[in-house]
Amino acid sequence: MSRSPGGRRPSDPLKAAEAAFRKATTKPAEGPPKAPVIPGVKETVTLRIDQEVLEYFQQDGPGWQDRINDALRKAAGK
């Protein structure tokens, strides 16, 4: 059997075509399904906002996170 330079065998065109066909027609694996959204459940996040904005919402005391949430809801049209 003759070998190409570098010691590699020439590829089999039929196998190469079959591999390309499998790659093009195989459905990619899907990730896990998204969890359903439950109304009223809040998620903990890290949010970087300007110090002045934070001070504005904190000036009326406790409940500032709810006030930020309400302002974001209004901005989102919800």
Rank of each mutant, 00 (worst) to 15 (best):
R8Q: 15
N69T: 14
D60V: 01
A35L: 07
D70L: 14
L47V: 12
R73W: 07
A16Q: 12
A20N: 08
A19G: 02
E52L: 08
G31N: 06
P10H: 05
R73I: 09
K27C: 00
I49K: 00
F57W: 05
L54G: 08
F21L: 14
P33A: 09
A16D: 15
L14K: 11
K34P: 01
K23N: 04
P36C: 02
P10C: 01
M1N: 02
Q51W: 00
D50R: 12
V41Y: 06
V41L: 13
R9W: 13
I38P: 00
D60F: 11
G6Y: 09
R48F: 08
P5N: 10
T44A: 05
Q65N: 14
N69L: 11
I38K: 14
V41G: 00
E43A: 06
P13W: 13
P36Y: 06
K15D: 11
P10M: 07
V41T: 07
D50Q: 11
E30S: 12
A24N: 10
P28W: 03
F57C: 04
K74E: 15
K15A: 12
K78A: 14
A76L: 13
I38C: 02
G31V: 03
P28F: 00
P13I: 08
M1Y: 05
T25W: 00
T44P: 00
F57N: 06
